[in-house]
């Protein structure tokens, strides 16, 4: 598996790509040779990377390189796509998420997700936050939990007087923070975020980024972003993916090019493709 070379914790992969540094700290995910197919089409190929606890890991790369596909493997959301098929392993605290006996519902209770477009339920603000705990059988004081969750998402002060109003009446940025509150209400172990700020203005984006920093002590966060500055600002580790021309099929398959400390990815990347991308020289 992992060859420990040069410095401890660093692995220079022998494969033609993937310069990978293992993150320090306890691992949450250990992805091993993961490939994802949509029908016959291989969308991502042989990804190996590991994600550490209480860190923010950013997935970056050009459009179509499989970031969303990859992210949705972590909580088995790809199960909902009929044609999607996964090969390889994702160990979550040592357990393979794709083992037969694993229940995707249990996976998603521990590994929450915030989507690109805010998608609050057409219910009240309160009910949006209470939905997850309720279905998980939460018995404690719901009012307190709703308040705490909204506070963590930096939304409480803006909505505390209108908890019974419909969530669809909130602004886009407020809706996205509500989705984050809804996600943290079930106290997941990991939060997956797929371009959570792409529909938000810079102020709302700043709020979401701040709150990611605030909550990272309690959660492990994996974020997909197109915004280089955002990745550089918020994340500890960054994985750069790109789409490679695939010989068998006339389509592009996503591969992991480089995975390292964010600082290193942005200042001194090993792979030329990474450098071209992060400096904006990529098409």
């Amino acid at each position: 598996m992992t060859a420990q070379e040069t410095k401890p914790g660093i692995r220079l992969d022998t494969a033609e790509h993937a310069v990978e540094r293992r993150p320090a700290g306890e691992l949450v995910f250990d992805v091993q040779d993961l490939s994802v197919y949509y029908g016959e089409f291989r969308a991502v190929r042989e990804i190996s990377m590991s994600i550490a606890q209480n860190q923010i890991t950013a997935l970056i790369g050009p459009s179509g390189c499989g970031k969303t596909t990859m992210l949705r493997c972590f909580n088995r959301m790809n199960d909902l796509i009929e044609t999607a098929r996964v090969e390889g392993k994702i160990l979550y605290h040592g357990v393979d998420l794709y083992e037969k006996s694993v229940d995707p519902v249990e996976v998603r209770r521990r590994i929450g997700m915030v989507f690109q477009k805010p998608n609050p339920f057409p219910k009240s603000i309160y009910d949006n936050v209470a939905f997850g705990p309720k279905i998980a059988g939460f018995k404690g004081n719901m009012d307190d939990l709703v308040e705490q969750s909204l506070q963590k998402a930096a939304l409480w002060d803006e909505v505390k007087s209108r908890l019974k109003e419909s969530a669809t009446g909130l602004s886009g940025g407020q809706q996205q923070r509500l989705c984050i509150a809804r996600c943290v209400a079930v106290e997941p172990d990991v939060i997956l975020m797929d371009e959570p700020c792409s529909a938000l203005d810079p102020i709302a984006t700043g709020k979401v980024e701040d709150l990611m920093q605030d909550i990272k002590d309690e959660y492990t966060i994996v974020i997909v972003t197109h915004n280089m500055q955002q990745a550089a600002r918020v994340s500890d580790m960054t994985a750069f993916f790109t789409a490679e021309v695939n010989e068998e099929q006339d389509r592009r398959t996503g591969v992991l090019v480089e995975y390292d400390k964010t600082e290193r990815i942005f200042t001194n990347p090993t792979d030329e493709r990474t450098e071209n991308y992060v400096t904006g020289r990529f098409g």
Binding site: V107, F121, F131, C179
Partner: peptide, 27 residues
């Protein structure tokens, strides 16, 4: 009913019947 609502519900760890009865039907 937008698929995004179903995804949101599944993402919260809801089962199919919960998603159908608590999210899709009310919507």
């Amino acid at each position: 009913v937008p698929g995004a609502l179903r995804e949101a519900s599944y993402g919260m760890g809801a089962r199919k019947r919960t998603t159908t009865m608590k999210i899709v039907v009310p919507a």
